[in-house]
């Protein structure tokens, strides 16, 4: 049993992305949370503009320095305002946006379950 567990652990460890890769992933994660200020509707991760490339470089530098992702995002919000965020935070009026799909699906499912579901019709062939 023990060798199996050991092998599984090694496999799991091997599956971790390497250090540089992890930084790239984090840069992309932060960049996709910010909208490119000079583009019409593109995130910093997607944008091909020069400002976006410079922002990505800055994000990389700050993450490599040890800042947390939230801090880097906040840095840009302080300078560009909340309109630089790629999605409103789930606070205040943003709550309506995030809550709506949950409420709608829950309400619909509840309606289906309660109002409509009964013993059902005769069973017919299924194949």
């Amino acid at each position: 049993m023990k060798p199996v567990v050991l092998v599984l652990c090694l496999v799991a460890l091997a599956a971790q992305p390497a250090g540089a890769q992890a930084l790239d992933d984090r840069v992309r994660a932060v960049a996709s949370r910010l909208m490119c200020p000079v583009c019409e509707g593109r995130t910093v991760a997607e944008s091909t503009s020069q400002l976006a490339a410079q922002m990505r470089a800055l994000i990389r530098e700050r993450l490599a320095r040890g800042e947390a992702e939230e801090e880097v995002v906040q840095y840009f919000v302080d300078r560009y305002g909340p309109s630089v965020l790629a999605a409103p935070p789930p606070r205040g009026s943003g709550l309506a946006l995030w809550a709506l799909p949950v409420l709608l699906v829950a309400a619909g499912a509840a309606y289906v379950l309660v109002r409509l579901c009964g013993p059902g019709g005769p069973e017919e062939d299924a194949a």
Partner: peptide, 13 residues
């Protein structure tokens, strides 16, 4: 050159 000043000022164009 690297856009740091632009970003620091919140330049959007």
């Amino acid at each position: 050159r690297d856009g740091r000043v632009a970003i620091a000022f919140g330049l959007a164009g």
